[in-house]
């Protein structure tokens, strides 16, 4: 392959193709493939969904149905850090709403929004299972507990 051709190859697409190839014979592969695709691209652009549909031979309407059904899937780009504020029962009774309010003010976005500098995407979730430390939030895969309106600002500042 010549150098010019190599430039045309999208490494993400190559990776996605490998994922599809690995799962193509597997039953029920759609959701794991979409999860991997989202890992690769950060979200699920329409072109990627079409690509997955062709690869797995699944009608696009069904893929769109699945993507919009599950909270995990994103059709829009996400920020560098995904901030999930828990408003589960335990967090609710221990003042999760106040924490959320502070975060919303701090970042200037609401549920589902991404900050202009792409630093954070804010999501409200119902229970991350760390109720003992309510109120809680999760930034990427890290859980932060015993939040207050004061310490939350400090935690946010640690993420670039």
């Amino acid at each position: 392959m010549c150098e010019a051709c190599e430039d045309l190859i999208d490494p993400k697409e190559t990776e996605l193709d490998a994922v599809i190839a690995r799962h193509v014979r597997e039953k029920g592969a759609l959701i794991p493939v979409l999860q991997k695709a989202q890992e690769i691209y950060g979200y699920l652009p329409a072109e990627v969904l079409k690509h997955v549909g062709r690869g797995l031979r699944i009608p696009l309407s069904k893929i769109y149905g699945v993507v919009t059904f599950y909270a995990q899937f994103r059709l829009m780009p996400m920020g560098r850090n995904v901030l999930r504020v828990c408003l589960g029962t335990a967090c609710h009774v221990r003042g999760g709403a106040k924490v959320l309010e502070t975060i919303e003010q701090e970042l200037g976005v609401k549920d589902g929004g991404t900050t202009e500098d792409q630093r954070f995407t804010l999501e409200i979730v119902a229970c991350i299972g760390a109720c003992g430390l309510a109120p809680t939030m999760m930034i990427n895969d890290e859980v932060h507990g015993r939040l207050t309106a004061e310490n939350v600002t400090e935690i946010l500042s640690k993420y670039e």
Partner: peptide, 21 residues
């Protein structure tokens, strides 16, 4: 045998239509 239509979203926001509505 076309599967052009399906449900999208869920709960009160559920709707029926082609992919990407």
């Amino acid at each position: 045998g076309r599967s052009v239509l399906d449900f999208s979203f869920r709960g009160f926001n559920a709707q029926v239509g082609p992919a990407f509505n």
